[in-house]
């Protein structure tokens, strides 16, 4: 594969043909995405450099105010300019909670996917489907179901009280903990399904070989299984981390709305704040961060697994 780069004659032809085939295969998806995702994104980019309209929307006048306001905070009372501490705080909270959520879903989802993938072949889809059943209800319903479990008069508190472990309910609702539990619950299948997809084809001959070489179970897991299912881990982590970053229903319902996450901040600008350009600029900022992280990931997998492909 290495000498592809020195393409000449028939090899170059074949490569061109392949490339064309690849583009053709991807084209339909790209067309839909261009219409319903990239196009809108361009609108957002443009909006971020316009002025805010009186009642939402934009006025077609160039302005860098929005971008200025993403990073800096002009104190409305004494007119001094400082770094936008509120925005940074919200950004940091979002990244922190999303990261924790990803970690927890991975900790729970990895063993679960593994167990499912090692069931007899004919029962696997059944277990897999069982993972997605709760998700036939929608996001709001699930979030409310979680609320029911962790509230002061909820399942956990009442249960613990009946067991005599605690005598006063623990305040779980309306905390960062509640947001994390909620997001973990909401996004768990996004972790389990890709993990399953890559574990299902795990070659257990390799595992057997490792045991033959006197590897312990832990070592087999760390040195054989995890490296083999790495694409699944990464896919799952992306699927959980990024939506968590932009989540806004869960923080609002379970976090009690006292502390915003990025999704809420952006929604505030498009809603009651009536500052669409700032909302657009904040979105582009978020996008740039995610993009950077993703690019690093693509680069790293290319250098790692280039030879496998």
């Amino acid at each position: 594969m290495k000498n592809d780069k020195l393409a000449s004659g028939p090899v170059g032809d074949m490569q061109r043909k392949r490339t064309r085939r690849n583009w053709l295969l991807s084209a339909p998806a790209l067309v839909v995405l261009a219409a319903a995702a990239s196009g809108p994104l361009l609108i957002v980019l443009v909006y971020s450099v316009l002025s805010a309209g009186e009642y939402g929307g934009v006025v077609w006048k160039f302005s860098t105010d929005a971008w200025f306001n993403v990073v800096f905070f002009r104190d409305i009372f004494d007119g001094t300019t400082t770094l936008a501490d509120a925005h940074m705080k919200i950004l940091w909270r979002s990244v922190r909670l999303s990261f924790m959520t990803t970690l927890i879903t991975l900790t729970i989802g990895f063993p679960t996917a593994y167990v499912i993938a090692t069931r007899p072949r004919e029962t696997r889809s059944f277990w897999l489907f069982l993972i997605t059943v709760p998700f036939w209800t929608n996001l709001l319903i699930r979030t409310f179901a979680i609320l029911e479990v962790i509230r002061n008069e909820g399942l956990i508190n009442i249960g613990l009280q009946m067991l005599g472990v605690i005598d006063k309910p623990i305040q779980m609702l309306y905390t960062d903990f509640a947001i994390m539990v909620g997001m973990t619950y909401v996004y768990l299948p996004l972790m389990v399904l890709p993990l399953y997809a890559s574990m299902e084809r795990l070659d257990f001959n390799l595992v057997e070989a490792a045991y033959d070489l006197y590897a312990t179970r832990r070592k087999v897991l760390r040195r054989v299984i995890i490296p083999l299912v790495k694409p699944g881990i990464i896919a799952g982590s992306i699927l959980v981390f990024i939506p968590s970053l932009g989540a806004f229903v869960t923080p609002r319902v379970l976090g009690g709305g006292k502390k915003m996450m990025l999704g809420n901040l952006i929604e505030l600008q498009f809603g009651a704040g009536r500052n669409w350009p700032l909302g657009a600029a904040l979105s582009v900022t978020l996008l740039a961060l995610v993009m950077a992280a993703l690019l690093i990931y693509v680069r790293s997998t290319q250098s790692h697994s280039g030879s496998v492909r």
Partner: peptide, 20 residues
């Protein structure tokens, strides 16, 4: 009333600080 753009800007700044 529905606030002016300037007032809304103040509102949003205070609200953001309040819920950061």
């Amino acid at each position: 009333p529905a606030c002016s753009k300037e007032a809304t800007e103040y509102y949003t700044a205070i609200w953001t600080e309040l819920t950061k």
